[in-house]
Amino acid sequence: MKHMTGLLFFLALLWWVLSGYTKPLLISLGIVSVLFVAFVAHRMDVVDEESHPLHLSLKLIRYWLYLLGQIVISNVKMVLIILSPRPDINPRIITVRTAQRSELGKVVLGNSVTLTPGTVTLQVEGDMIEVHALNDDSAKDVEQGTFDQRVPASIEEKS
């Protein structure tokens, strides 16, 4: 029920932001469409903890700030590599064990690794993730598991 309320609120906000209408007729049409989408989502059985991780919103924001910093750092590194006359690249595929137990935790970790330039998640199998790293530097980051420790722990507890 909590997730349904969250979904309805989110959809209503999205509808209003995208349309910006205030006329009663149009707003009622918007309410109808929000209810319809919520009904379809309920039928598809996707309204749950996984699609609406309400319980970790605050911690997620802190994680996002950290991720943003990492993205900026590795972007600068990538720009230097691309612009150098002889690119210092030594690509390899590494396999690391992740501490994440839940599906959501693995998804967050995999996406974060892909989002930072220099490393791309190739496959997640069990608790092993396969990462393609561009050079020694970026490979080291993943091997040390800095992201792994930073992914909010509350993802673990709930699911």
Binding site: N75, M78, V79, I82, I89, P91, T114, L115, T116, P117, G118, T119, V120, H132, L134
Partner: peptide, 9 residues
């Protein structure tokens, strides 16, 4: 595979 990293930027 290396080009993927460049497009990541």
């Amino acid at each position: 595979y290396t080009r993927m990293h460049a497009s990541g930027i």
